[in-house]
């Protein structure tokens, strides 16, 4: 009986996550759509406006046709928040959901072995989908899915700054990274920054910044201020939509930090393309669920 009960829960979670992935692949979150509209209205470069117009038209076309808005449906990451997690059962449901969504939505099979380059055909593989477990003191369980394309991930980097360079070093590095990336991560991008920690934690911080909605500032005033200033600096570079020039290079800059070693200042810059595809499933203690 107990085993059957777990299996039923796994099935229900799997079903809900297939819907979650479908929504993420087809429809952008409203904060991203709003930011793109704002970018279109404020863009002064003619070529830049054409790019943003195509982006907006594509968003509408994808929604009305029920098709993934970008062919690169990416590597799939899950961020699972709960007070206690049955890791084995949840992982089983998430993996099965990815396989099914790949066929049903459909998603492009984009997962390959790093050396042989053989495609697994179903978007799962060794340690993929990537699952980040977050134990938190909440009553419900939340699963956030992120579909992240390779263009933005390939432009990402880790910098071990001399700690003496401080805030100025952080600003310089981020702005240089944006100019160097140019059109490759499909600007206007979202620049997600991780600061401090050990290198794994530095990148994890950048990934936590990634799932924070656009327009929501870091709770600490000093960090929020740095986010605002970096956004202003990045949008003064003129890289512009798709790297073809203009004032909208980034939609947002977000920072998360961990304390770090006195002798190091690690900085991770993780770009996200304008197609910032994420969606969240919330399952309440009574079993009811919602996707947003």
């Amino acid at each position: 009986m107990a085993v059957e009960c777990v299996e039923l829960k796994v099935r229900r979670l799997e079903e809900a996550v297939v819907q979650l992935i479908r929504k993420a692949a087809i429809e952008l979150p409203s904060d991203v759509k709003e930011a793109l509209w704002k970018a279109y209205k404020s863009e002064t470069s003619k070529i830049g406006r054409i790019q943003l117009k195509a982006i907006l038209e594509n968003i509408t076309a994808a929604e009305s046709a029920g098709k993934p808005l970008c062919q690169d449906t990416g590597l799939i990451s899950f961020y699972v928040r709960s007070r206690s997690i049955d890791h084995m059962a949840v992982e089983k449901a998430l993996r099965r959901a990815v396989v099914r969504a790949s066929r049903l939505v459909p998603l492009r099979p984009s997962v390959v072995h790093p050396l042989t380059r053989l495609n697994t055909g179903n978007n799962t593989g060794n340690r993929i989908p990537n699952i980040l477990w977050m134990l938190e003191d909440i009553d419900h369980m939340e699963v956030t899915v992120v579909l992240k394309g390779a263009g933005s991930e390939n432009s990402s980097d880790l910098y071990m700054l001399p700690p003496g360079e401080g805030v100025k070093g952080v600003k310089r590095t981020v702005v240089e990274a944006v100019v160097k990336a140019g059109g490759q991560p499909c600007p206007p991008t979202i620049v997600n920054i991780g600061l401090g920690g050990t290198v794994d934690l530095t990148f994890k911080m950048a990934k936590l910044a990634l799932i924070r909605p656009l327009g929501k500032r870091h709770p600490e005033g000093g960090i929020a201020e740095l986010e605002r200033e970096l956004l202003r600096l990045v949008n003064s570079t003129g890289v512009g939509p798709m790297g073809l020039g203009g004032r909208n290079t980034a939609l947002e800059v977000k920072i998360e930090y961990a304390h770090g070693h006195t002798a190091s200042l690690p900085l991770a810059v993780n770009f996200q393309c304008w197609a910032d595809r994420r969606a969240t499933l919330r399952i309440h203690p009574d079993g009811s669920a919602e996707i947003f």
Binding site: A62, D72, C273, W274
Partner: peptide
């Protein structure tokens, strides 16, 4: 030639 990155449904049409 450049085509706007991510405008994938428009391209497929």
């Amino acid at each position: 030639c450049h085509y706007p990155g991510g405008a994938a449904v428009l391209a497929a049409e």
